[in-house]
C-alpha cells in the first residue's frame, strides 16, 4: 500500500501525498504537486503505491499503464486517458471525472465509491470485484464489460448504458435510473435486492 504517513499540518489527519509531507489541502502549490506526481506516473509503466488523493489532473494520457495500490480518491480528472490500463486495489473514491477514457481497462478489487462520472467510457473492460456504490453517472457507458461481483448500491444513473455486460453476482441496487439500457446483459444473475444475500 501507499505510505500512510500523516500530513504535517497541525490537526490534519489526512495521508500525505507521495513524495511530499502534506496532503492536497495543505500543499502550498497543489498544481506543482500534481505536475510532479503526473511526471512520476508518466515516467514508469508500472506504478505502485502512489497517493495522489485530492489533486487535479487534466489532459493526461496514461494509456496502458499498470497501477497497484494507488489512491486517486477525491481527485478531479478531466480529459485523462486510462485506456487499456490495469488497476489492482486502487481507489478513486469521491473523484470527479469528466470526459475520461477508462475503456479496455482491467480493474480488480478497486473502489470508485461516491465518484461522479460525466461522459466516461468503461467500454470493453474487466471490472471484476469493484465498488461503484453511490456513483453518479451521466452520459457514460459500461457496454461490453464484465462486472462480475461488482457493486452499484445507491448509485444514480442517467443516460448510462450497460449493454451486453456480465452482471453475475453484481449488486445492482441503484437509487435513480433515467434513460439506462441493460439490453443483452444477464440482469437475472445480478443481485437486485438485499433479500438474496448468502454471506
Amino acid at each position: 500500500m501507499y505510505d500512510f504517513r500523516r500530513c504535517e499540518a497541525p490537526d490534519c489527519r489526512a495521508t500525505a501525498l507521495t513524495g511530499f509531507s502534506c496532503c492536497a489541502d495543505h500543499c502550498h502549490d497543489p498544481e506543482a504537486v500534481a505536475a510532479s506526481i503526473a511526471g512520476l506516473i508518466r515516467s514508469s509503466k508500472s506504478i505502485r503505491s502512489v497517493n495522489a488523493s485530492g489533486l487535479r489532473f487534466e489532459g493526461l494520457d496514461l494509456s496502458g499503464k499498470s497501477f497497484y495500490a494507488c489512491s486517486f480518491s477525491g481527485t478531479v480528472l478531466k480529459n485523462v486517458a486510462f485506456t487499456g490500463c490495469t488497476f489492482r486495489m486502487c481507489f478513486f473514491d469521491f473523484c470527479s471525472a469528466d470526459s475520461c477514457d477508462f475503456s479496455g481497462i482491467d480493474a480488480q478489487f478497486c473502489s470508485f465509491a461516491g465518484a461522479r462520472f460525466l461522459n466516461i467510457s468503461f467500454e470493453h473492460s474487466e471490472l471484476v470485484h469493484n465498488n461503484f456504490d453511490g456513483v453518479r453517472t451521466s452520459d457514460s457507458t459500461f457496454n461490453d464489460s464484465d462486472l462480475y461481483n461488482s457493486r452499484f448500491i445507491q448509485s444514480e444513473f442517467e443516460k448510462t448504458d450497460f449493454v451486453d455486460c456480465n452482471l453475475k453476482r453484481a449488486f445492482i441496487i441503484p437509487s435513480k435510473e433515467i434513460d439506462v439500457s441493460w439490453r443483452l446483459s444477464n440482469t437475472q444473475e445480478a443481485i437486485l435486492g438485499v433479500d438474496r444475500l448468502e454471506e
Binding site: 481507489f91 469521491f94 470485484h129 465498488n131 448500491i153
Partner: peptide, 21 residues
C-alpha cells in the same frame, strides 16, 4: 480515508460506508 477490506466483495472506505451503506 480508512480502507475497508471485507471478507466478501470489493473494498471500500469509511467515508463511502457512512454515506452509501
Amino acid at each position: 480515508d480508512c480502507i475497508v477490506l471485507p471478507g466478501h466483495g470489493p473494498p471500500s472506505t469509511i467515508g463511502a460506508e457512512k454515506l452509501y451503506n
